[in-house]
């Protein structure tokens, strides 16, 4: 009887322990990110400011992402036009293709696709760079040189993300609408004037503005998550690899999940 007692406790505790082993690390990650966010928000408004770093990150996140954003947005706009044309033809509403493309791009696809691309490109680069700096003690070295690593490394990425994501989204919206326009008028034979009129008639500033507001959040989320994962990485090359993967996966999930809630809140 006595020999069976410990086993009973183990079986009873097991699910709880298992659940705990899953939940506690997630809590500590979320807690760590919230702390990093608080420090970052405070440091944004207090000197010293590292303008050169901010500029460098804006180039890295924004300018260097332009080619891939251009390609993605133009083909997304094009395929939107193609698909909605096929669908709308069935009830003689082809003239509304322009409206569908414009609304889809500005409200949803512009911000979200740009966010996902930047998460994959710049987010991965951030996590890998900061992770390598962490495991090679370069972040510790910054501290010993009396330079706050969050100020010096995270704040510029955060600002860069928040400013450049909306900028890329504007670009993406415009190029997507252009892509739809070209396919509709050149391939599907729509009248250019009708197409553009239908686009402008139904597109409101609010659509564009809300899309940009979402992308502003996405930019902040990508920078924060990727920086956190980089800072928290440990254990050499393998650790940096894992941190990079987690940065991209978590950023993408954060974008897609927050997109729903932001849309529900903004477009109600």
């Amino acid at each position: 009887m006595t020999s069976r007692e410990p086993r009973k406790t183990v079986t009873l505790l097991c699910p709880v322990e298992y659940l705990g082993s899953l939940l506690i690390p997630s809590f500590s990650v979320v807690g760590g990110m919230i702390m990093m966010l608080c420090f970052t928000l405070r440091y944004i408004f207090t000197p010293p400011f590292y303008l050169r770093n901010i500029f460098k990150q804006m180039v890295e996140i924004g300018v260097n992402s332009m080619p891939v954003v251009l390609i993605t947005a133009s083909f997304t706009g094009a395929v939107l036009a193609l698909q909605s044309h096929t669908a709308f033809k069935r009830f003689d509403a082809e003239t509304l293709v322009g409206t569908v493309v414009a609304l889809s791009m500005t409200r949803e696809l512009g911000p979200v696709l740009t966010g996902l691309i930047v998460a994959g490109r710049a987010g991965a680069a951030m996590a890998a760079e900061l992770g390598t700096m962490r495991v090679t003690e370069q972040i510790d070295a910054l501290e010993t040189l009396a330079t706050n690593p969050v100020r010096y490394l995270v704040v510029p990425r955060f600002i860069g993300g928040m400013l450049m994501l909306p900028a890329l989204t504007v670009l993406s919206d415009g190029i997507g609408i252009m892509g739809g326009f070209i396919v509709s008028t050149r391939v599907l034979g729509a009248n250019p004037t009708t197409y553009m009129t239908r686009t402008w008639d139904f597109l409101e500033m609010e659509d564009i503005f809300h899309g940009l507001l979402k992308s502003f959040f996405f930019g902040a989320a990508i920078a924060l998550i990727s920086s956190y994962e980089g800072f928290a990485s440990e254990g050499g090359a393998e650790g940096v690899g894992k941190a990079t993967t987690r940065a991209v996966v978590l950023s993408s999930m954060a974008i897609l999940i927050s997109d729903y809630f932001l849309s529900a809140w903004l477009f109600k």
Binding site: T132, E137, Q138, D140, A141, E143, T144, A146
Partner: peptide, 16 residues
């Protein structure tokens, strides 16, 4: 205080 410190790291930790 850290301005009074200098540290040599094991693998130098140079900013690459």
């Amino acid at each position: 205080l850290r301005k009074k410190f200098g540290m040599l790291f094991q693998n130098a930790a140079l900013f690459d």
